[in-house]
Nucleic acid binder design. Sequence first.
DNA 1: TAGTATACACACTTTAGGGTAAGTACTTGT
DNA 2: ACAAGTACTTACCCTAAAGTGTGTATACTA
Lengths: 131, 131
Amino acid sequence: MTLIKESSTIQENKSQAFVACPVTFVMEKIGGYWKPIILFNLLSGSKRYSELKKSIPAITEKVLIQQLKQLEGDGLLIRKSKPVVPPYVTYELSKSGKALHPVLYAMAEWAVGNSGKLSKTFSKQMKDFPL
Amino acid sequence: MTLIKESSTIQENKSQAFVACPVTFVMEKIGGYWKPIILFNLLSGSKRYSELKKSIPAITEKVLIQQLKQLEGDGLLIRKSKPVVPPYVTYELSKSGKALHPVLYAMAEWAVGNSGKLSKTFSKQMKDFPL
DNA sequence: TAGTATACACACTTTAGGGTAAGTACTTGT
DNA sequence: ACAAGTACTTACCCTAAAGTGTGTATACTA
């Protein structure tokens, strides 16, 4: 995790917007490209690290843990590990993580309605959407 | 606008996730850091370029137009310009842009409920939330 | 005549995020 | 003896996003 330069204008700009706009606050937490996908995959319940990997084949291991750590740090999910060999680690949504359900759901609904050709694919996914 | 290298693994990864996950589809459209904020500011109605700039002081001009162009390109908003001097350009949400309202609203609600100290600030903003 | 306002455009630099590849520790299966 | 599985970690590199600064056309105003 590379440190953030204090003089970074980007960060200053972000923190400006951050206090002013609730939507930006959300983007700070789940704005990373993979985060919504990870949360989406955890909506259906707790999963092992390896299960997540299988669910999201396109993500690399480094990025997956990186994002998981950040989400954990932001209190959106909870990591549970059993002290066994081989390791057994599960991730599940925290209370505020679960509270994101309406957001993810609204996103998915919008995708279904506004994706044109893809809508059929998405509609299938929506059938499995955990309500 | 720099061209995207076809061999880019990132893009391949993204397009993989893109077809598989509705949430990712949404992130493709509004995933940029500033896009939700811009959309949020346009929810209340059409605005001139300069008004947007004032509403979002932290964004630079370059990034603002860049994002506006992308949003326009993705069909989320409509640009209208009057052929006068000085120029008079307004931006407003398109139909699918307006359809994002539930998403933005869900985000804002989540922010109000999960921001701790900031919740008061956000609650004030929510009073002005265009329903 | 110089200044102001508007909505950009362009070139250049910085930064954060993400990708690649390799390694670790320990046990179980062949 | 050796590979395989598990959940990571580390070091290095590349790219896309974002920031900085300057320029432009035109009309109105002081």
